[in-house]
Design a binder for these strands. Sequence first.
DNA 1: CGGCCTTTGACAACCGTTCTCAACAAGCGT
DNA 2: ACGCTTGTTGAGAACGGTTGTCAAAGGCCG
Lengths: 133, 133
Amino acid sequence: MAARMTRQRTAVVEALDELADFRSAQQLHETLRARGESVGLATVYRALQALAEASEVDVLRAEDGESLYRRCARREHHHHLVCRHCGRTVEIDGPTVEAWASKVAAAQGFDDIEHTIELWGTCADCRASAATK
Amino acid sequence: MAARMTRQRTAVVEALDELADFRSAQQLHETLRARGESVGLATVYRALQALAEASEVDVLRAEDGESLYRRCARREHHHHLVCRHCGRTVEIDGPTVEAWASKVAAAQGFDDIEHTIELWGTCADCRASAATK
DNA sequence: CGGCCTTTGACAACCGTTCTCAACAAGCGT
DNA sequence: ACGCTTGTTGAGAACGGTTGTCAAAGGCCG
């Protein structure tokens, strides 16, 4: 139960802190390998899972179903505008949207409401480099 | 290129029409088998894929990553309130939300914007049967 | 330092989905 | 109705992300 601070966990957290954008577990694993920090893939998955449970990282699903992780600045509930090419992320919140969501759901007799509100797009940088093809 | 109307495709469409709720490809496959309509799993996947491309069905991802399909009443853009236990679905639209989403994204210099707005909950029926455990 | 007990890592197992490819059948022309 | 052409089917293999297994490694508390 006690969360031990191991070299591997520290490495995962550090990598997330530096990256700042949404990354897949495999990308993270690759990054760690590249910088010499040898960490097993399964361990990366477990670390991310634990962090997500503790709300230390946000998780969202890419369009192809892969899970992406990010260490967000704010721990409160919020949403994201994510570049589908490079993972670049902007945190956003929509107080209006929150209210709207729970009102609609309640009106239909639904409980335990959760909502998924994510915005995907192509950021300015990726649009520029795509033009240079 | 021409879309041929085969027994299998017809069966998939019919099953979707009757079900009315979001179902996974495997559930659909199981349903068809159960009613004697022998259809290969791969074929179900292909049929759903084709229907999705033609905007004949809506696709969304369950929390565990599985794809769910549904034949919606309206073909225009809309969102869903889905019971995470039985797939029961209510179509909803949020004109305010749409506007908000594209405005926010544009303000950050993002292009090709797409948004995912889905509501998950437990419907009244499932809540009731859960109480009977 | 010693030992308990969590964590690790290589690899196998899983599971949803897609691919392969020979057999099959829609739909068209005759 | 009869071929023919060509898209479609289906069983099984392949795939890719993720999770499980289990012996070895190593935090952490006394």
